[in-house]
Amino acid sequence: MQALLKLSRGIDRLNALVGRYVIWLILAATVISGINAVVRKVFHTSSNAFLEVQWYLFAASFLLAAGYTLLEKEHVKVDVLNAKLSLRTRVWIDVLGFALFLLPMCVVVLRYGTPFFLQAWSSGEMSSNAGGLIRWPVYLMMPLGFGLLLLQGVSEFIKRIAFLMGLIDDPTVKIVEKTAEEALAEAIRKAEEEAARNGAKHA
C-alpha cells in the first residue's frame, strides 16, 4: 500500500503542475479575443483562425484541468445529501463512484478518443471553415485531458482505500491556503492582540 500511496503522491504532483500552468491558456484566449475584436473594428477584417484558436485554448484549459479540479476537490457534489452521511459512508460512495463510473468513463473516452486524434493527425485534417486551423491539436486534448483525469481518479481511489485501512487522514478534506491578503490580515490581528496584551501588563 505504501508503494501505491507513493504513486498517488506522484500523480498529485503531476496534476498540480499541470493546473498551475493551464491557467495561462485562459489569459491567452482572452488576449486573442481582445486582439480579434480590435482588428475587426479598426481594420474591418478578421479570420476564422482567431475564433478557432480561442475555442482550442478553451477546450485545452477545460480538459487539461479536469484532473487538477478533482485533486482540488472542486467537482460538484450533492452536499445537501452528502453532508448528512458519516465520513466512512461518504468515502465508500467515492470509492464506488470512482470504480464504477469515473474510471470506466475515462477508459471509454480514451478508447475512442485516441484513434480519433490519430486519424486526424495522420490525415492532416483541417477545419472546414475558411482560414481555419488544423484539427489534431484540439483532438489531442481529449486523450490528454481524460488521461490526466484517469490518473487522478486512480490517485483519489488509492487515498480513499488507504483511509479506510487507517493509513492516512481524511482525504476528502480540502486544504485551503491563505491568500496574501488573508495572511497579512492575520499577522496584523496577531500584532494588535500582542500589543494589547503588552499594554495590559504595563497598566
Score class of each variant (00 low, 15 high):
23 I>H: 06
188 I>D: 10
69 T>I: 12
59 A>C: 14
193 E>M: 02
133 L>T: 06
188 I>Q: 12
51 L>A: 15
77 K>E: 09
78 V>C: 09
94 D>H: 04
180 A>D: 10
187 A>Y: 07
146 F>Q: 03
86 S>A: 12
26 I>T: 11
58 F>T: 14
129 N>L: 15
51 L>S: 14
37 A>W: 06
201 K>E: 14
72 E>V: 08
19 G>W: 00
95 V>M: 01
134 I>F: 04
87 L>C: 03
184 L>F: 14
24 W>K: 04
21 Y>D: 04
168 I>H: 03
195 A>T: 04
70 L>E: 07
113 G>M: 00
65 A>S: 15
13 R>W: 12
116 F>P: 07
107 V>A: 12
29 A>C: 09
28 A>S: 01
85 L>A: 08
53 V>E: 07
200 A>S: 04
128 S>P: 15
180 A>Q: 14
188 I>G: 03
41 K>G: 00
34 G>Q: 06
203 A>L: 11
139 Y>S: 00
120 A>D: 08
143 P>K: 02
95 V>P: 03
59 A>E: 06
38 V>P: 03
162 A>N: 02
165 M>Y: 06
108 V>I: 14
194 E>S: 05
199 G>E: 15
77 K>R: 13
160 R>P: 03
187 A>F: 08
59 A>L: 10
43 F>M: 12
2 Q>I: 11
150 L>H: 01
190 K>I: 06
44 H>F: 09
100 L>Y: 09
103 L>Q: 04
203 A>R: 11
38 V>D: 01
2 Q>S: 12
190 K>F: 08
160 R>F: 02
88 R>H: 15
94 D>L: 01
74 E>A: 13
123 S>F: 13
110 L>K: 00
114 T>K: 04
155 S>K: 07
62 F>Q: 03
81 L>P: 06
175 I>Q: 13
164 L>N: 02
69 T>N: 00
59 A>N: 11
152 Q>K: 09
179 T>E: 03
176 V>E: 15
27 L>V: 14
173 V>A: 08
119 Q>T: 15
21 Y>R: 05
192 E>M: 09
202 H>E: 14
114 T>A: 04
160 R>M: 09
172 T>F: 10
32 I>P: 08
114 T>M: 07
96 L>K: 11
33 S>P: 11
100 L>I: 14
85 L>E: 08
188 I>N: 12
126 M>R: 13
6 K>Q: 14
34 G>I: 07
139 Y>K: 00
177 E>N: 12
118 L>R: 11
162 A>Q: 00
167 L>F: 10
203 A>Y: 12
197 R>H: 09
